[in-house]
Design a protein around this nucleic acid. Structure first.
Length: 485
RNA sequence: GCGCCAGUAGCUCAGCAGGAUAGAGCAACGGCCUUCUAAGCCGUAGGUCCGGGGUUCGAGUCCCUGCUGGCGUGCCA
């Protein structure tokens, strides 16, 4: 017997024909969703393509800030979403633990350390790191080493301090990430990379390819031949290399590892840098199409409507930890993910603390919790949802029920669209919509009614699918699915 | 100057491949708790989708141009 797929077909204005899908089709779809259980939403769309997602990659010179928090929420969700639809993504953190900034960090600690022994260090330099954490680290160093370090040679002292500071700060950063439920598959250290001789290798590769030259006692890369607007320095006059070289080396290792696609999630301040990186990749004859850059636009922080100026060196930053303390992990992640990556993000700390209802994460989690308590109620009323045959789904006839099913059916496509457009916010929007539809449905109809056990079971069957889908989507966003609120 | 991102309700933002009357949350106003959680629901009000051209049966969406804001344009990372 063939079922009718359409309930009605009519002409609706110029150029529009409306097909109304038969309720039976929706019911069949619902059964299929329930049968898939937690696997619903999982597809093979990505065909196991290997994707490297590099994100955050903050300097280990201070606590993670709010910009890193946005990158963390974004990168991690993108990972989860891509994985769900059949890609094979990996998460990577590149540690810029070499170069100028790290040296400045060591010097900053050193000054604070000497200060603790009442040495006159004069004016604390502007370019040094001013944050309280630098003083804390100096103090910690003092409690471990005492005054011993005062007497060792300056070079050894700085080296020791650098080691200490890097280890401490990276541990701090990892702790913040843990609190944010963000994990990485690999950590790549710039120092290790440099130690492996890759820097020299890149320099000689580029020289062999004939794209370097010397001028003004520096070594240049002829980036302009490869699409950049001008040539770039590889080795400075003082013989040290620019950050550019290890960064090329790092990207070459990505190519060597054989990914189908590499995604760099970067802050907006890096976009002037991309043409030269792509130029180098082209010069070294790699496929630049495989490298995809996502720019997360900046985060503007406001407090009671006033813009908070942030500067890492001046120590005026709002840290990721502070954010989690104030608004909570779920709300913070949800807030970041709701904005599409290319949009600037205005974040008012005052609002976030004052009116938590402004954040729709509660709205969604509430829907999930509500369904749980309805199921609990059913149990109390001795209505067993498992004692149910799918032919009873004929009890579901209302438009809002069909609409709910339609929304559920959409879920796998939302995941695919979010993955392919690199836009996790689509999943967040989906969740808000599904939650809203459920809240309305709940308000309008009694789900558990012992006078109508068959109808109750049919509705329980439906809302269980809603609950599972919500939970499923929450996971993709990295937020919790509370059973009670 | 050049490049990138943005400009949609009072505020923060969605709007998928161009489709029907442009949506949500917050803020404002008026209702709904003896019934599965009121962190919810219903209703009212609020818009020249930055301006101007163009493509099309049809443009918030695409093209050109102008304006405004942010960022970038280092032998810093």
């Amino acid at each position: 017997m063939r079922k009718k797929a359409y309930r009605k077909i009519d002409i609706a204005g110029p150029g529009f024909i409306n097909f109304t899908i038969a309720n039976s089709m929706y019911r069949d779809a619902l059964v299929s969703i329930r049968k898939q259980k937690t696997a619903f939403g999982t597809t093979e769309h990505g065909a196991e393509q290997r994707i490297l997602i590099e994100f955050i990659s903050a300097n280990p010179t201070g606590p993670l800030n709010i910009v890193s928090a946005r990158a963390a929420a974004y990168g991690d969700s993108l990972y989860r979403i891509m994985k769900r639809c059949g890609y094979r993504p990996e998460r990577e953190f590149y540690i810029n633990d070499a170069g100028n900034q790290v040296d400045i960090l060591a010097e900053s600690i050193e000054l604070r350390y000497r200060e603790l022994y009442n040495e006159d260090i004069g004016e604390f330099p502007v370019e040094a790191y001013h944050g309280q954490y630098v003083i804390d680290l100096a103090q910690k160093l003092k409690s471990i080493e005492g005054s011993r370090l005062i007497h060792v040679a300056e070079r050894d002292r700085l080296e020791k301090m650098k080691e200490f500071a890097l280890a401490q700060i990276m541990a701090m950063q990892q702790l913040s990430l843990e609190r944010f439920d963000v994990e990485f598959d690999s950590w790549v250290s710039e120092r290790v990379l440099r130690g492996q001789g890759t820097v020299e290798e890149i320099l000689s590769f580029l020289t062999e390819a004939g794209c370097t030259y010397e001028m003004d006692e520096a070594v240049w890369f002829s980036a302009s031949k490869f699409g950049d607007e001008k040539d770039r320095v590889l080795m400075k006059t003082d013989g040290s290399i620019t950050y550019f070289v290890p960064d090329i080396a790092y990207h070459i290792t990505k190519y060597q590892r054989g990914f189908d696609k590499m995604i760099d999630v970067l802050g907006p301040d890096h976009h002037g840098y991309i043409p030269r990186l792509k130029a180098a990749i082209r010069a070294l004859k790699h496929d630049e199409e495989k490298l995809e850059i996502i720019f997360l636009q900046q985060v503007n922080l406001f407090d009671e409507g006033e813009k908070v100026k942030m500067s890492k060196r001046a120590g005026m930053i709002v840290t990721m930890d502070e954010l989690i303390d104030v608004v909570g992990k779920d709300a913070a992640r949800f807030f970041f993910i709701r904005r599409k990556p290319s949009a600037h993000l205005n974040f008012d700390l005052f609002l976030a603390t004052q009116k938590s209802s402004e954040n729709p994460v509660y709205y969604c989690q509430y829907a999930h919790a509500r369904i749980h308590s309805i199921l609990k109620k059913a149990k109390k009323e001795n209505i067993d949802p498992d004692d149910f045959h799918t032919r009873n789904l004929k009890k579901l006839v209302r438009d809002d029920e069909m609409l709910l099913i339609k929304q559920l059916v959409d879920f796998p496509n939302v995941i695919i669209a979010a993955a392919d457009n690199r836009e996790p916010h689509r999943v967040a929007d989906y969740v808000v919509e599904l939650s809203g539809m459920f809240h309305k449905y709940y308000q309008k109809h009694t789900i558990v009614n012992k006078n109508y056990p068959d109808l109750s079971k049919a509705r329980l069957y439906l809302i269980t699918a809603v609950r599972d889908t919500l939970k499923n989507a929450f996971y993709l966003l990295g937020i919790s699915a509370p059973k009670k609120m």
